[in-house]
Design a protein around this nucleic acid. Structure first.
Lengths: 352, 352
DNA sequence: CATTTTTGCACAATCGATGGTGCAATGAAT
DNA sequence: ATTCATTGCACCATCGATTGTGCAAAAATG
């Protein structure tokens, strides 16, 4: 399988071949040659040799010397849901358009793993980092400043670095209101028929809960802690919560605010265990959009966070030289049931 | 925001602090110190200093010297669907468990981008590479051997490197048969009511089409090219295909074999444009599993490829020193409608 | 023609870690 | 006491690129 594991050409090889010094070769190939007053013809010669020999710079060496790498990192909690995978997709497009190399890693919502992973990225002299949905953004921050790595939080805010997040309060208000209004007057939802499931004790969950409760108070004069069931971000815990509720009450609440599409998968698991009748009259509001989720057999209203907007803003902030530590809110969007939105994949040309 | 951008400690710093030589420090910190007969007490001293000063090795320097990086790459076509995001998730778990650092990048199904991206990875001395669903696996291969990078194709096979793929033929047979059998005898599906949509001219599509046709011939004595509509891997093209069909025939075929969940999103877009009646009697078989897709208002049978199995096999192959260039088939699994399978996220502990 | 300026490039240090080699000090064996 | 083996470590070249500096040759200036 390995044919010619011939070593890659280096500037030294080209230096010999061209008869000029390594530094000249280097300058020519990295674009600084005009500044160094290299003759056009010399440059041309070297460039020719370079692509004759398929020269590509050793980026580790370059990075070592210049302590920059051309890498831009995105730290995700997990890959496997449409919210974060869309984020990865948008992120890649952004980074590539700036001529850098995107690298995406996940840290499984584990604070320890988050820090370790960032340490590793730093060891590769990653130039910039977007920290998405970190469980411990400030812990990550501490690691970052230790080495002066520019970074911005996204999705979940930290208190020490600039953050770009959805307006979760507003989003939750919109979503909750939409759920309530989705019921016609004769089937009007009662305050204790509207529950929030999922999430945990993070900023996003808290804000969403706050929004949920605010609207509930405003529109239905009812609100109580028992209508809130945090389950963490796992399908399994959410499923258990639904099962418990069902056992207790003999049915699901008619109005369901689900705090993330991951938790929504818990509802799927519940559904798999129960006949359709168990949830034919429910209306679900889900924070985070999933195209397939939007077309389930009952009305599913979703919130789509403006991922593009957040990423764009994050890069703007990183471009500033002394970004202020503040949290920028990006407005999310309400998605009515049965809606197939375009996503980052649509930007990709497909050669059929 | 930047507090103490104090330089990171190096082995030289520790060398001064400890009074031993850089090489000793290096040996102690990278584990080769026993081999070098460093005294236990010296080692201890250095280790203490190291974590007092939060030393972490500069991996670019290490990589430069040793021409290995500890990085393992996964090249994806796209991030944004559950098949590939699950793959990323499994991949990360695998690589981490081996103490290396996973990095995931996508190349948008663009052969040129694929090669460029791999070039970049190589410049960082990535140790191993999994090439998933590449449009031009052999092109990538050419780049890889140029530098002796171990790599394995996954999902789509190449002719020059070992490949691990789903048994798409069998999978398509199972899926097609399941679609047909899902109709009761009185509503039996006719040969021209069963269509395949999506995919393009790649190995997976061809095999699936072959399986589809084989079963169609076997079970319904019918088969024709007009029942195959390749649309490329884009939601948009698929939608157009569905619309066209609908305009032409006044309805969708009752039996739909959809070649990828990405194409399935095209059906969602179609659905958004049409009342539910337009597809209340259809049965969809989709190659690739999406948990939400499984619960749509009509029966959706799915194929789940054994991602874990493929990744595991791929790493096994890469561990061999002279892997033979062959294609390994991994059996996929048929998923009945309304099924919520566990996925890689379930492996993640969630602190509620 | 002498001097200054500009052009074109080579030299060498450097980034941080690795690993082969060599050598002094210690302990064991004769 | 001498010889030999072992222990414990320092030295130094090296990986491939970047970059500040210096200097000869060519061109411009007077």
């Amino acid at each position: 399988m390995e044919h010619q594991p011939k070593k890659k050409a280096t500037i030294y090889d080209l230096s010999v071949l061209s008869g000029s010094s390594p530094s000249t070769v280097s300058a020519v190939l990295n674009g600084t040659w005009r500044k160094r007053r290299i003759k056009e013809t010399t440059a041309e010669l070297i460039r020719d040799l370079a692509d004759q020999h398929q020269y590509t710079a050793n980026l580790q060496a370059r990075g070592l010397r210049s302590s920059r790498s051309g890498l831009v990192g995105l730290l995700l909690p997990v890959h496997d849901n449409r919210y974060f995978s869309s984020m990865a997709q948008s992120f890649e497009a952004h980074v590539r358009s700036r001529g850098q190399c995107p690298i995406v890693v996940s840290a499984c919502r584990d604070p320890e793993e988050e820090r370790r992973t960032v340490e590793t990225l730093i060891s590769y002299s990653v130039d910039e980092l977007i920290v998405a949905g970190a469980t411990d953004p400030d812990g990550v921050h501490a690691v970052c400043i230790g080495s002066g790595l520019k970074h911005v939080n996204i999705d979940l805010p930290g208190s020490k670095a600039p953050s770009v997040i959805s307006d979760n309060y507003q989003g939750a208000r919109m979503l909750t209101e939409a759920i309530i209004r989705h019921f016609s007057d004769d089937l009007k939802l009662g305050p204790d028929e509207l529950y929030l499931f999922g999430g945990r004790d993070d900023h996003a969950s808290r804000e969403r809960i706050r929004g949920f409760r605010a609207i509930k108070r405003e529109l239905m004069q009812g609100d109580s802690d028992k209508c809130i069931e945090p389950t963490g971000y796992s399908p399994n815990m959410a499923q258990i919560a639904f099962e418990r509720f069902y056992e207790r009450e003999g049915k699901l609440p008619r109005g369901l605010f689900i705090n993330s599409s991951i938790n929504f998968e818990g509802l799927l698991r519940f559904m798999a265990q129960h006949p359709n009748e168990a949830f034919m009259d429910i209306v679900v509001g889900c924070y985070d959009y999933d195209p397939f989720g939007s077309f389930l057999p009952f009305p599913v209203i979703m919130i789509r966070q403006d991922i593009e907007g957040m990423i764009t803003k994050a890069f703007e902030i990183m471009a500033e030289n002394r970004p202020s530590v503040q949290t920028y809110l990006i407005q999310p969007e309400l998605v009515p049931p049965r809606t197939a939105l375009k996503g980052p994949l649509d930007a990709i040309k497909d050669i059929a």
